[in-house]
């Protein structure tokens, strides 16, 4: 019995050692067109589902290409790009000057592609009577000046603010374009009691269940179980709901481009993949997931 144990243990270990050994070193050296190409893709959580859908559809037509997709936030993706561990970095904001500097210092120049557009929807619980807010009101809610729904025409309930984590491009965009109204040098910050949820889905779930909550998320994430707020640039201007059309027209106030960055000009499999993303096929997936395509129809 004991011997059986030992033998089993030994065989497993050996089998695994054999299995784990790098399969063959010849792979990268041989003819590149016939070989499997691996594309590493990392970054924005807003884009991760889009990136997943692209990767899946593309691998169906091109089975020799293997694409690995990881989220984690825009900052994560760009950091990985700088460290040289990925081929494509998805970003829901433009690369920052200091990130650009760090990349150049590492000897690589990031190249930017606009891959899709996205509206940021402000969402509340379905039972919340509030359905429109001005940008100023949203800013005041998040900076902690407004703390009760009754101050913006709702019920007497405390406001629970939900935000993405600070590594999210959406968080940074929301800080700059909503809380600070795009004013450079403005030092307004999120109220400290803002809940920082690690993911977009966490925000949706909490908003769906909690009548006190307010959250923001990429339009692609919004589900019917939450209510989307119509936003006005000011109290005198019309309140607009986010949609592909209002984003394309530019009438919805908070929308932005979604980017993909590469290290240097892309070549080979990475280039073909990028071209496909920007093609009609790739952009149809953008529409299917609730984002706004770059070449607005």
């Amino acid at each position: 019995m004991k011997r059986v144990f030992l033998v089993v243990l030994l065989v497993t270990v050996l089998a695994v050692l054999a299995g784990c050994a790098p399969p063959d070193q010849s792979q990268p050296a041989a003819d590149p067109t016939l070989q499997t190409a691996v594309i590493q893709n990392k970054g924005s959580d807003t884009m991760v589902n889009l990136a997943l859908a692209w990767a899946e559809a593309y691998q169906e037509i091109n089975p020799q290409v293997r694409i690995s997709v990881t989220g984690g936030g825009t900052g994560t993706g760009i950091a990985a790009l700088i460290n040289g561990t990925v081929d494509l970095a998805n970003a829901s904001r433009e690369i920052k000057a200091e990130e650009m500097k760090a990349a150049l210092a590492n000897g690589s120049e990031p190249v930017e592609f606009i891959a899709a557009r996205d509206a940021i929807a402000v969402i509340v619980n379905l039972h919340n009577p509030v359905s429109e807010l001005t940008l100023q009101q949203v800013a005041d809610i998040y900076s902690g000046k407004i703390n009760n729904w009754s101050e913006v025409g709702g019920e007497d309930r405390p406001i629970v603010r939900l935000s993405r984590e600070t590594n999210s491009g959406t968080h940074v965009y929301f800080l700059e374009e909503v809380l600070r109204m795009g004013i450079a040098g403005d030092k307004t910050l999120f109220s400290t009691d803002t809940l920082l949820l690690p993911s977009s889905e966490g925000i949706i779930v909490e908003v769906r269940d909690n009548p006190n909550a307010i959250g923001y998320d990429g339009l692609g994430y919004v589900v019917p179980e939450v209510k989307v707020i119509a936003l006005g640039r000011s109290a005198h201007e019309p309140y607009i709901l986010p949609s592909a059309a209002t984003v394309a027209q530019g009438s919805y106030p908070i929308s932005r481009d979604l980017y993909i960055y590469t290290v240097g000009q892309p070549t080979g499999a990475t280039l073909s993949y990028l071209q496909w993303i920007l093609s009609t096929d790739g952009q149809n997936i953008v529409i299917a997931l609730g984002f706004v395509p770059i070449a607005s129809p």
Binding site: P22, A55, E56, S68, T70, G71, G72
Partner: peptide, 14 residues
């Protein structure tokens, strides 16, 4: 890895 729709084939794979 968030999404890696294949099996890892070396110890150096995510």
């Amino acid at each position: 890895a968030f999404f890696l729709p294949r099996l890892p084939d070396s110890p150096f794979d995510a």
